[in-house]
């Protein structure tokens, strides 16, 4: 069973249906209790600050599951909140599970970045099994992550600057793009996550 954290920021059909499609047995979780889940997805909608406000009450339970080794996957804003802070919401504290901050996409580029960008894989990880550099994924975002520790990087895209697309550190992984909106290759990533959860 894979828990989808529902912190009340919008519809979760896409990620739910995508996990059903890859036999992930999703369940929507509205309370900070993940005891029945084998893996956890933190979807991302809205702004960094609003997301953290709503997500705060799940923080402790999520941290505990993470420490016990349950795989956790953050998506979009669900990736950004893993870091310390964001220029989008000054003063708001992130989960701070990965050191670094979130900054605005460079000026001169269309913001938000919206569309299919091609991945450059910098490190082979199980989540990217079957995915090659050059494969395209669907991005919608105005801010991007700057990890202090570059060893968490797994893939990037070029958008006026290097934009971090995938990070991973043991059982914690996240994508800036939306795998649930990225066609068959996005589903492949979710399938890989489900496989990580089961192994």
């Amino acid at each position: 069973m894979i828990a989808i954290v529902d912190y009340g920021m919008g519809n979760l059909f896409s990620i739910y249906n995508a996990l059903v499609r890859v036999s992930g047995e999703p369940m929507i979780v509205t309370e900070p209790d993940f005891s029945e889940a084998d893996g956890i997805v933190v979807p991302g909608v809205g702004s960094f600050g609003r997301c953290m406000e709503q997500l705060a009450r799940f923080g402790e339970a999520l941290r505990q599951e993470l420490d016990e080794g349950k795989p956790v996957l953050g998506i979009c804003i669900g990736m950004q909140v893993l870091f310390d802070e964001s220029a989008e919401s000054p003063g708001a504290q992130g989960l701070a599970w990965m050191p670094g901050k979130v900054v605005r996409l460079p000026s001169g580029m269309m913001v938000p970045q919206m569309g299919w960008n091609d991945l450059r894989i910098t490190r082979e990880i199980p989540l990217l099994d079957g995915i090659s550099s050059g494969d395209r994924f669907y991005f919608v975002h105005s801010y991007h992550c700057r990890p202090d520790d570059r060893s968490v990087l797994a893939a990037t895209v070029e958008y006026g600057t290097e934009v971090v697309a995938v990070v991973e550190n043991d059982n914690l992984a996240a994508t800036q793009f939306h795998p649930e909106k990225s066609g068959p290759r996005g589903l492949r990533i979710l399938e890989n996550f489900v496989r990580c959860v089961r192994c």
């Binding site: 896409s14 995508a18 066609g183």
Partner: peptide
């Protein structure tokens, strides 16, 4: 939309 989003994984 509901029906479509069961089968279609693009925006």
């Amino acid at each position: 939309i509901r029906k479509t989003s069961e089968e279609v994984f693009v925006p």
